[in-house]
Amino acid sequence: MTTETISATEPSQQTAYDEMLTALRAELEAHERKSAKHRNLVIFAWSGDLDRVWPTFILATTAAAMGMQTTVFFTFWGLFPLVKNEVRITGENWMQKMMSMMNRGGTEHLGLSKMNFAGAGPAMMKKLADEHHVASPTELLEVARDLGVTLIPCQMTMDLLGLEADDLIDGLAEPAGAASALAEAQNAITLFI
C-alpha cells in the first residue's frame, strides 16, 4: 500500500487502519514467540577432533550468551572430549581399553582432523591460539557449563566404549539417547558437527 492511499483516506478510516496494523503486529509477535525456533540450538557433537570440538564449544557458549536455550548431545567420538583430562585408560574389556589408549579422552588431548602429525599439529594450533588469546576448548567448556548449556552424553556410546559416569567431567546432564536429543531438537536450530 502506498503512502498516498493512506493519506487520502478519511480520519476514521485511518484509525481503522492503525488498529488493524496494531492487531497484525501483535499477532506477528505472538507467532514469533510461539515458533521460537531461533531461541533454541541443539548441536549433535559427533567428532572428537580438535578442529570440530573447538567450533562446537564456541557456538554453544555464544548461543547461551545470546540467551538461546542450548543443548549439546555428545555421541560416538564426540564423547571423548568429555572424559576428564586426568583419566588415562577407560573401558572394561581389552578392546575398549585399547581404543582409549589410541584415542585419549579429555579436552587437552584432542587431535586435528588434518595435519595432526602425531600431535605436533595440535601443539602448534594451541601455541597459535595462545598467541592470539583464543580460549582453549577446556576454558570454553567451563564457560559453557557456567552459562547453562545442557551437555548430554549419549548413553549408548558410553556403553559401547565402556565409559563410566566417573570417567566424565562434572556438570553434565543425565546420559540419554537419540530420542531425548531429537525431542530437544523439535523446535530448535540443529547442527551436526
Binding site: T61, A64, A65, M66, H133, A135, D146
Partner: peptide
Amino acid sequence: KGLSCPLPIAKTAQ
C-alpha cells in the same frame, strides 16, 4: 582487551 571470539561476548553475558 586481548580476548578473542567468543570470550568478549560470553564474559559480558556472564
